[in-house]
């Protein structure tokens, strides 16, 4: 019985659409966040003098400080982006798939 449901879901094109969209979003965002973080680490390793550039003319606060804070914010914003898309688009699609499978 449950196998029937699973088979029906698998043959539903919407299921393939959901699986494809979700995995593209999830892996894409993972790659993006890790790429941004490891570029930052590369910058730390290769050009510390760039990170030391003063943020303001004649100031001492370096550009590296807001960059660090930005990475935290950016990673969090990506999380928000994913959750928003998943909780609206993906969940809607999911509800349709489950509904159609139970018919």
């Amino acid at each position: 019985m449950s196998n029937n449901i699973n088979d029906r879901i698998r043959s539903n094109p919407k299921y393939r659409e959901l699986a494809g969209k979700r995995s593209r979003t999830a892996w894409g965002l993972t790659a993006l966040v890790l790429a941004v973080y490891y570029s930052f680490m590369l910058l730390v390793g290769t050009s510390p003098e760039f990170l030391a550039t003063p943020l303001f003319e004649g100031g001492v606060l370096s550009i590296g400080v807001p960059i660090g804070a930005f990475i935290i914010f950016f990673a969090w914003a990506c999380t928000g982006l994913y959750v928003r898309r998943a909780n609206s688009e993906f969940d809607r699609l999911n509800a349709e798939i489950v509904e159609e499978a139970r018919k």
Partner: peptide, 16 residues
């Protein structure tokens, strides 16, 4: 600060 950022970056991956 650089270390602190490293402690944080695993979280989005957990979400995705």
């Amino acid at each position: 600060l650089v270390y602190t950022v490293g402690f944080f970056v695993g979280w989005p991956v957990v979400t995705f």
